[in-house]
């Protein structure tokens, strides 16, 4: 079930969502997660997966992402907190080495559960 179809607003689709078993796998449509407005929309769509659709196992696949800013990291931190509050799990995978460095600098590599590949990530839930 794609988020775009659930939204009545004429917003460009930011996330591809699919179910693999009981895990919700999310791919980003954008190569760059930068603009304030985009980050806001991505955040809302991710939060609605937890708050409205009650998904509890989220896997964020970063394979399309070449770029992200600190504002995007803030949304991921909030998402992780939301999931922890309801006993859910967030795992990130396929992070480009340059972006992984951003996680390392900000010490978020220790904060998030990060797996190399999607298959390994699916096993880690």
């Amino acid at each position: 079930m794609a988020i775009s179809r659930e939204s009545s607003q004429p917003r460009r689709r930011r996330l591809e969502v699919e179910e693999i078993g009981d895990v919700t796998v999310i791919n980003f449509v954008d190569r760059k997660i930068l603009d304030e407005q985009n980050i806001q929309i991505i955040g809302e769509q991710l939060f609605s997966l937890v708050d409205q659709q009650e998904r509890r196992k989220l896997l964020l696949n970063f394979r399309n992402v070449e770029y992200l800013s600190s504002a995007a990291l803030g949304k991921l931190i909030t998402l992780n907190k939301k999931l922890q509050q309801v006993g859910g799990t967030l795992i990130l995978c396929n992070i480009d080495p340059q972006i992984y460095e951003v996680f390392e600098i900000t010490k978020l590599d220790k904060f998030f559960n990060i797996q190399k590949e999607e298959q390994a990530a699916l096993q880690a839930f």
């Binding site: 800013s69 600190s70 803030g74 931190i77 909030t78 907190k81 900000t106 904060f111």
Partner: peptide, 12 residues
Amino acid sequence: NLERPCGRGVML
């Protein structure tokens, strides 16, 4: 401070 939005950008 991990969940606070400030400071990460300047650090980067």
